[in-house]
Amino acid sequence: MNQDPRLAPPVRRIIPRQAGTVVEPRSEPAPSAAAAVASAAQPAVEPGVQSGAWQDPVDMPAPPRAPTTTHSNVVERMRLESVWLAYGDRWVVRDVSLPVRQGEVLALIGASGSGKTTLLRSLNRLTEITAGAARAGHITLDGEEIDGLEANDLRRRISMVFQQPNPFPMSVFENVAYSLREERAARRRRRRAGLPGRGPRGDQLRASVVEALRRAGLYDEVGDDLDRPALGLSGGQQQRLCIARSLAAGPEVLLLDEPCSALDPISTATIEELIVGLRESVAVVIVTHNLQQAVRVADHVAFMHLGELVEYGPSQQIFEHPRQQRTRDYVSGAFG
């Protein structure tokens, strides 16, 4: 692997409002562990961490805690190939390749600072609104490069829920309705694409709001008064409201960044149940530093360490028979 001194790839530096500038961050020799893993492991065993040639993991054993998953309805929606991410000169994600599938939950685990959030944010190009962030590599949604899609359309298809609940300072209803109402530019694009050119309004809007709240498991708690201020809800309710808001946009992929880290166990259980229930209709990617949570909700797990994807595989494999020593060390914390 020392004979493989791959340099960090050229990167399109993302500066808000000034796309297209090509800057080369400080190159550093990057035959990092991810590459080491890639060349050391046999492709058939670890397709997830392969960079370059892609092999579909067809014969994955069903994960233990996901009895409802039948592989017939698991569809690959996104694919990351050799994704590199940097802030300024510092690479924080190095050469990550992963599939994101609908019908299952993918958990990103790893210590703080290992680049999980950054990787997640790159999936819907939210890194672009962070000054100094840069990306290289390919990310596709249904085979299409996400860079080729209009950013706001992309973000409606790939929705994100953040670590801290961040409802808007409006009523519960308005929070959800906000993501349902289409803005003019989006309406125009939709009309051009032959879709109905408007978000729902009136009774239809209300029905959609209620539906989203139901899906997020919040309706029973707030249904009696949707006009109450969202900031008056408890932390767990706020986070479910944020999930409802994301679901209302009708996403195909739902990104959750440690959605339960600020919540109590009961709220956490509610949200985990919700996540497992969602995976049939959306591809779910959840970042968590709570290993028990990953065991509970994930079908596939990706373990990241210091920006590198160390191991990717079915949940059972990662937690019970990890192939990498570093994974073993990390997940051993999960079971004592």
Binding site: I129, R155, S159, M160, N166, F168, Y178
Partner: peptide, 15 residues
């Protein structure tokens, strides 16, 4: 205003 307010809106695909 907290930055997460802006992020929340943009993450929903709003301009």
């Amino acid at each position: 205003l907290p930055a997460r307010l802006r992020e929340a809106s943009q993450a929903l695909g709003k301009t």
